[in-house]
Amino acid sequence: MSILIYTESENGKLKKAAFEVASYAAAIAAQNGLSVTAVSFNTDDTDTLGTYGVSKVLNVKNENLSEFNATLYADTILQAAEKETATLVVLGSSANDKFLAPMVAVKLNAGYAPNVVSLPESTNPLKVKRTTFTNKAFALTQVDTEKAVIGLAKNSFGLKEEQTTCTTEDFAPTIVESSSKVLSTDKATGKVTIADAEIVVSGGRGLKGPENWGMIEELADVLGAATACSKPVSDLGWRPHGEHVGQTGKPVASNLYIAIGISGAIQHLAGVNASKVKVVINNDPEAPFFKAADYGVVGDAFEVVPQLIEKLKEYKANNT
């Protein structure tokens, strides 16, 4: 018996989130005398999973799976789970993970706990803590089925090294015809995405207009961060919808979230609660965001941000 994890890769390379999923599953496995098997698609660096406690990788090399196809991916994960007689399947929380997890759960006849933020409080029955009410609260959830699927919330467990002897096997699942196909993918290359970012720099309506985003992008560049925005900013078309964070947008679970000219409405805060450290730059000392922040600068963004960029450049120059 084993724990099966789905490890996502891009252009043949595992994503960082895959190592977090591996670390998490390895910790559960260690407590329960189990081993961790990973299933991965067209991945070249599967060996690195051994560093995070994975003892076997089922690597699927198949042209038909070179592009994401939910039905075929979910079918393959199911076949891997059956082969390994897995009772627990763990996925991450990327867009693809969230697409696949409920499908895998139904196919496996397993209860599904999404947005899980910590190790199980018990494994029999399985009890996990997950976020609910879009990060405004947590729910202790018990899974009553024999098998379970966990969706691990991003950046909730971290990476834990656990050097393990890891073997990679080719795995050839039965693949059926699919009536869905990808026509085109439009993805900014070389940009850090909100989903993967450790630091997110976010701008609100206080920035007055899209022409003022140059300094936001520059600050993000210096920090190796992703850019984000509040809802009105994307509604006004100043920034793309994909950057909108909050209760009706994307959740952000970065290590550092810098909010510039954002008031801190409850719907915005719900989306950034899961970020570990929050910095607010706002010229209104009464802005609600200060109550939710760790560090704050009361000041005009148009003066503070350019200075901060200069100082960070100096700091980076002296520290690398």
Binding site: Y112, K136, A137, F138, L140, T141, Q142, V143
Partner: peptide
């Protein structure tokens, strides 16, 4: 297949450092 046994609110936030 699942049940929520209890809820919890996030820990209160300490004061912001200005």
């Amino acid at each position: 297949q699942t049940q929520i046994t209890s809820f919890e609110k996030p820990a209160a936030k300490g004061d912001v450092k200005l």
